[in-house]
Write a protein that binds this DNA or RNA. Structure first.
Length: 588
RNA sequence: ACACCUGUAGCUCAGUGGAUAGAGCAAUGGCCUCCGGAGCCAUGUGCGGCGGUUCGAUUCCGCUCAGGUGUACCA
């Protein structure tokens, strides 16, 4: 469906052209003075200079051409040159009725669907998820859902960290503790056991211990480095052990991501990119891009327009070893080969911006990707505690994601546990509402900014919070159930009547903005715009609800129109909530 | 040292080259036998500072102050 604002714009533009002005002045925006009008056009003021004419005269000419329009209830020129627009109720109602019939509530799917890879998550295996992984997961998941909704082919990749010294450390520690394991018998040639010799919680203890120990004991560290080397060169026993670590970790990660409604289409990992490194490096050398500087192999990525020195992108360390850059670039090679994406978006901590700028430039310069592939860095800010400093546990440590989720779920559970519902249902409600509280608290801020995590505020059922949005949905469901109980299922095709009261008009206008908002939120990778929208929509509903008694309404046609209206409201809210990666319970 | 980001109400955050800069929380006062009160209405305070561009700047530009972050062999 054409966006409402575009339909208005068309008509205004036509009038501008008819009156002899350039079409670019037919600009229309949502009114910033809702007490005066619904939409406005400021084009007359912009045109005044070019045509050397008072803006109000231009506005008057344009308005004169539109006075008998089918669309406008009222259109008037106001000093110094504003054109204020109020739409006919019938026009609005028709638009919203069409919207209800449209498969995506007025949103048009992309005509040329793109393949977009979203790189988010990025957890290390053998280490539990902590709060540092939260934003990437939440924001990335939402962005991914936006893209899919807009009709693109979007691939979410967890991009696991599975290939560094951490693996060597774990192997070394296992060997120290269990030298008799078959994985360490160099003469063993049979099959290795299918069952992992450790559990996730054991792994979680092994890694930090080995890491700390290696810092004190150089010979241990050396052994771990050697183990890493052997693993990367395919030593059978180590490789088998690594597979166990991977499997145990991935199972645990999936469990935790599922709790957050985060799902990846792909579980690729750094090790998958390794086979591409050799050819890539050779290509960079052959192409004349890479050269030795201070012993390391680098590619210059400076540009004339840079205001500061941008260090070259390092491909190989001076000892010849690969590093993060190498893997990230090789991952790009792999992705281009497997998926030929039109865009790759990285949802990463904003502190890595310079680093990714180097990687992107290097990838473009060395032709790993063409100019038609868009590489985007979507950096997010830090989650801070109430003191404004990075969020920590009371003891000052890093909080595990599981603990964080549990805390907020418990906070919600305390509020619903006294309801007349079963323990199981209360738990389930607490889970859904808790996740919504957590996510909405995060997503309602601009991703690039730091924000303050406040469990009290986020889990409140009042104000601009996730629970409030869910509550609105639940309430509408309750009204619809009550209506159905009395009157049977509502007529799905019922057209909406022109609104009578302002609160009804406001609700319709809020609904009509959905497609415009959604397109914008997708293009700008801005989940907070969806949050803002559903909050406004919920408030518009609250106003409408307060003024009209839907169940008690005696005019059946009116009542039926209202049922259609609130059904659409519910559907749009549920769609948005889903796009944010949240879900509404049946009751709460 | 250089670069980037941020600075909007007591607090947490939106927003905009145009008419009176908005929400929530907190505070104060009020309303309603409410289809779920987890409601509705009202009141008060603000664009860090100084210049510039513009008919018009909180928005764009420059300087300045404050906070944060980053500057090749970590990821």
């Amino acid at each position: 469906m054409e966006k409402l604002i575009v339909e208005i714009k068309k008509e205004i533009t036509e009038a501008f052209v008819k009156a002899g002005y350039d079409e670019k002045f037919g600009m229309v925006s949502v009114s910033n003075r809702p007490d005066l009008c619904q939409y406005q056009c400021n084009g007359a003021m912009a045109a005044a200079k070019q045509y050397k004419k008072a803006p109000i005269m231009i506005a008057n000419e344009v308005v004169a051409l539109l006075e008998n329009s089918e669309t406008f209830e009222k259109i008037e020129a106001i000093a110094p040159g504003f054109i204020n627009i109020t739409l006919k109720g019938e026009f609005i109602a028709n638009y919203v009725s069409d919207m209800a019939m449209s498969p995506k509530y007025g949103v048009e799917e992309a005509k040329n669907p793109k393949t977009i890879i979203i790189d988010y998550g990025g957890p290390n295996i053998a280490k539990p998820l902590h709060v540092g992984h939260l934003r990437s997961a939440i924001i990335g998941e939402s962005i991914k859902r936006f893209g899919k909704y807009m009709g693109h082919k979007v691939i979410g990749d967890a991009h696991l960290g599975d290939w560094g010294l951490q693996m060597g450390l774990i192997i070394t520690e296992c060997k120290k503790r269990n030298p008799d394991w078959v994985y360490f018998d160099d003469n063993y040639e049979g099959e290795y056991p299918k069952e992992a010799p450790f559990t996730m919680s054991e792994l979680e203890e092994i890694y930090p211990y080995a890491n700390a120990y290696s810092k004190e004991h150089p010979e241990y560290r050396e052994e771990a480095q050697n183990a890493t080397f052997l693993l990367q060169n395919g030593k059978r026993g180590y490789y088998a052990l690594w597979e166990h670590i991977l499997n145990v970790s991935v199972n645990d990660l999936k469990k935790n991501y599922t709790k957050l409604n985060v799902e990846f289409d792909l579980w690729k990992k750094e090790s998958d990119a390794q086979p591409y490194i050799k050819d890539m490096v050779q290509g960079m050398k052959d192409g004349g891009y890479a050269y030795i500087s201070e012993g390391a192999l680098v590619v210059d990525v400076k540009e004339d327009t840079d205001k500061k020195e941008i260090p070259p992108c390092m491909i190989l360390k001076s000892d010849g070893a690969t590093l993060y850059n190498t893997t990230d670039l090789a991952t790009i090679v792999e992705r281009m080969k497997l998926f030929k994406p039109d865009a790759i978006t990285y949802v990463v901590d904003k502190r890595q911006e310079l680093y990714f700028e180097q990687v992107f430039r290097c990838a473009k310069k060395t032709k790993l990707v063409g100019d038609d592939t868009k590489l985007t860095f979507l950096g997010f800010g830090t989650m801070n505690g109430k003191d404004g400093k990075p969020f920590k546990t009371r003891e000052g440590g890093v909080m595990r994601l599981e603990t964080l989720i549990k805390n907020i779920t418990d906070a919600v559970y305390d509020k619903v546990s006294d309801r007349d519902i079963s323990e199981d249902e209360a738990r389930e409600i607490a889970r859904k509402v808790g996740v919504a509280a957590l996510k909405y608290g995060d997503l309602s801020n601009q991703a690039s900014k730091d924000y303050i995590f406040d469990i009290e505020r986020f889990s409140s059922f009042e104000g601009n919070t996730g629970p409030y949005i869910l509550y609105t949905i639940v309430r509408i469901k309750s009204i619809l159930a009550k209506y159905t109980e009395k009157n049977g299922a509502p007529d799905a095709d019922a057209k909406m009547l022109a609104p009578v009261k302002k609160s009804e008009t406001d609700l319709m206008l809020a609904l009509a903005k959905f497609n415009d908002m959604m397109e914008n939120a997708f293009e700008e990778n801005a989940p907070h715009k969806v949050c803002q929208y559903i909050y406004e929509l919920s408030n518009a509903f609250a106003g409408f609800y307060h003024e009209n008694k839907i169940i008690a309404e005696e005019d059946k046609a009116r009542q039926s129109s209202w049922i259609s209206l609130i059904t659409l409201t519910k559907n749009v809210l549920e769609t948005c909530v889903d796009l944010l990666g949240m879900e509404a319970p049946e009751r709460m």
